[in-house]
Computed example of a mutant assay.
Amino acid sequence: MMARARFAMLLMSAAVCPAAALAQDHHAHQMPSVPAATPAPAAPMPAMEPGDPAVVSTSPGPELETPPPPEAGKGPPRAADAIWGADAMRASRAELQRMHGAFPLAWFQLDRLEARVGDGRDGYLWDAQGYYGGPTTRLWVKSEGEGRFGGRVQDAEFQALYARAIAPFFDVQAGVRQDVAGPNTTYAVLGIQGLAPYMFELDAAAFLSHRGDLTVRIEAELDQRITQRLIVQPRAELNLAAQDVPQLGVGAGVDTFAVGVRLRYEIAREFAPYIGVEQQWRTGAGARFARATGDTPRSTRLLLGVRAWF
């Protein structure tokens, strides 16, 4: 009878609060308590030095990595040759080099073909260059010249240069230059051409003529994209000479300095007309030679031209 009453009380408690009923039932059947075992103290971690293997295995960076084992690097430089033979691997190695760019290319660019208007000396100018060769050795050809509309060509030069890469973005160039307008002059050429930091295109060369005259030309330009097709290009050119060259109208020191800017629009990537303006100065003896021929030492010209490559 008492058991039935107790069961009825449990049912009533569960209806009101199930959690309380469960707790009451749990306490009613609680097992005698057993003292908890005291955990054993943890063994102290041994001190580890930076060179220990345990530290090396969890190293987050290269500063704690172990050096390579002594046997590393003692095998053949081309392990496949030791298995298949050098003759069998030669063709495969050549194909791998070609896949990574070791093949000859031909490229030509008409960098400037422009009409130049200003100071009563309207004229034209061309500046072209190209090469044939691989990624590290190339044959370069260059031509540059200018003249006046309705008159003769004033300056014209052609260069043939052998180039070899000396850095990822620079070639050293050596060869010959021949001037065919005015006094015929042959030069030995030594220069450097490439892409300087901040994307400046640099072309610098020293010229030693067959008469012993030494001159230097430095050109730099920078392409700044306004849009995918509209590009503004600042450009500067500096010509120096170690001595006066009266027959060429060149003065010692800084003979000519020119700065300009061109704005071109790429109708296609290979073809872009442009407009621009350029300021040029002649200094020292160069200014004196310019006055003697009826030119002014300082001139400003408007430019209209086209740039193309293939």
Rank of each mutant, 00 (worst) to 15 (best):
A5N: 08
L11D: 06
V16P: 01
A20P: 00
A20Y: 04
A21P: 06
A21I: 03
Q24S: 11
H26F: 06
H27M: 14
A28G: 15
H29G: 10
P32N: 10
P35Q: 14
T38W: 04
P41L: 14
P46Q: 11
G51E: 10
D52M: 09
T58F: 02
P60T: 04
P68M: 12
P76I: 05
P76D: 13
A79L: 12
D87W: 01
D87A: 15
A91P: 02
L96I: 04
M99S: 12
F103A: 14
L105K: 14
L105S: 07
A106N: 09
L110N: 08
R116S: 10
V117N: 01
R121D: 04
G123W: 01
L125G: 04
D127W: 06
P135N: 12
T136P: 00
W140Y: 11
R148W: 03
R152K: 13
D155W: 02
V172I: 15
Q173D: 03
G175Y: 03
G191P: 08
P197Q: 07
L202R: 07
A204K: 02
F207P: 05
G212P: 08
D223M: 06
I226R: 02
L230C: 12
L240H: 09
A242P: 08
G249K: 08
G253W: 05
D255W: 00
D255H: 13
D255L: 00
V259L: 07
R269H: 07
G284K: 06
A290M: 03
G294V: 01
G294W: 02
D295K: 09
T296H: 13
S299V: 10
G305K: 06
